[in-house]
Each structure stands twice: as C-alpha cells, then as structure tokens.
Amino acid sequence: MAALDWLNVLVAAILLAGIYAVMSVGMTIIYGVMKIVNLAHAGFMMLGAYFAYELFERLHLDPLWGAVLAFPMFFAIGRLVYWLFVRWLPVSNQPTLASLLLMFGIWLVLQNLAYLIWGNQDRSIFTPRTFLTTQIGPITVSTLRLVAFAVAVVSLLVFEVVLRRTWYGRSVRALIQNRYAGQLVGVDTKRTASLTFGLGIAFAGMAGALFASLYSFNPDFGRPFLIRSFVIIVLGGLESASGVALGALVLALAETVGILFVPAGYQLAISFGLLVVVLLVLPDGLARLFERKYRPA
C-alpha cells in the first residue's frame, strides 16, 4: 500500500477517535466517581441518535445542531434517572452486582421502549452535506466527519477546562482519587454524583447524535459501542479522562487498519480481541505506561 493510503487511514482513524472519545468519556467519569459501570450507556446513545433524527425530521434541524442540543437534554435526563433510580444503590468502592443489574435493566427498558416507538427498521439521516468531501492537501475526507470531529474535540476541551478550573471539577477529581478523603475535606458526594451522572449521560446522548449523521441506526444501536467504550476505558486506565483520548485513538486505528484485513462482519472481534490482549498484558491501561505524574483528571 502506498504511503498516501496509510495517511488516509490515519486521518480516518483520528476523525473516528474524536467521537469515540466523546462516547467513552461519559462512561469513564461515571465509573470514576460512582464506581458504576453504566451499561445503559448504549441505550442513551441510541436515544441520542433518535433525538437528532426527530429534530431533523420534524424541525429540519441539522443533526450537528441536534448533537449540540442533545447535551443539555440528556443532562436533564441523566439527572432524572439518577434521582429516580441510581441514588438508591448502595455506595461502594467496587462495582456491585446490584449496580450492574440495575443499569442493565435500564438499558433493556430504553431499548425496548425505542422498539415500541420507532419500530425495528433502520433509520438514517440524509442532509445535503452527507456526501460532501473536503480536500486537505493530498487527502480527501468526508466533511461531515470533519465537522463531527470538531464538535467532539470542542466539547472534550470544554470538559477538560471544567475539570481543572471549577469546584465541580475539583470534587470529581477528588472523588476519583480517593472517595473517603474527598468526603473528609467536605466534597458533597451526592451532588457531585448527580451532576456527574447527568454529564455522563449528556456525553452519551451527544455521541449518539453525532453517530446518527454518520451511520444508520435502530433501537439496538449502541450495543457494539458499549464494548468499544469499555475497550477504550480499559486502554486508557479505567479512571483517567486523559487516557480516554489515547484509548480512543488506539481502538480507532486498530479498527480502521483491521478492516483492510478482516471481513467487516468481524469488526467487533477486533475490539474484543484488543480487550483480551490489554487485560492480559497491561491491566492498568496504556496511560500508566506513558504518564505516571498526571494521574486522574
């Protein structure tokens, strides 16, 4: 393969990694702060896709605006779900059986509500921009992917600033590092957990809406992405947001290159294979290899 082809693959992988990072960062902060594996993440991504779809069909709103609007909308939904269900879970430093089963139940409900509302046929969003391409130097990329990537990167940067500069961000980092020490210095765990759950769901909804303009979707949409999110988080070291970007890039690269050698039907096997390898070789994640000084953030 020519060098130019490899460059194309690399750019495609980076663009994909941006959305992958948005999708995984929500799962990471929820896990970091509450030690809950949000299995319902896939369900909220799927709802995010339908949210963008409905806005596009009814109000003719561009799906990228849908992605931006999905953020506050799913933040509210996330806080509601927290208030209704999640806050009753016993607090633990380990993911509990109860939390896994609860989030799984919520996922089943969301998925099957969507089947009732939208049926099981695949939907997709076509805008005049869908097939546009942009020429950057010698390589050609889809404009839509480029814009989706920009939206993803901006939202991640804003989130990084929030984590570093605000009191909420400090509470989140404190709870991720040491829950009890955080409580001792007066971090309001309930409020931080509620906000974090809302933010995590907001990122899930936004990622779903971003994917909606790139792929077709149905109520089962999101399940493969649940595995991918988890691979990314494990790659990034389960509790660090900076690792998420790295993990997303590694997975996106593996998938984009893998598709050249493996039939598309087996793509999920690539991410799963990567998960097994990482668990066996470096269970602490890639991030620990490179940066030990900047632990969680």
Partner: peptide, 21 residues
C-alpha cells in the same frame, strides 16, 4: 485475575463476538 467490572463487560463482548462468528 482482576477485580472490578472486567468480567461482566467481557461477557458482553464474548457473546457478541461468538454470535457474529
């Protein structure tokens, strides 16, 4: 070998992969 949620998530991955295969 690890504590934490690894097993639970890996089981979802395995079932997806096996069904595809």
């Amino acid at each position: 070998r690890l504590r934490g949620p690894y097993f639970a998530i890996a089981t979802i991955g395995v079932s997806e992969t096996v069904r595809v295969i």
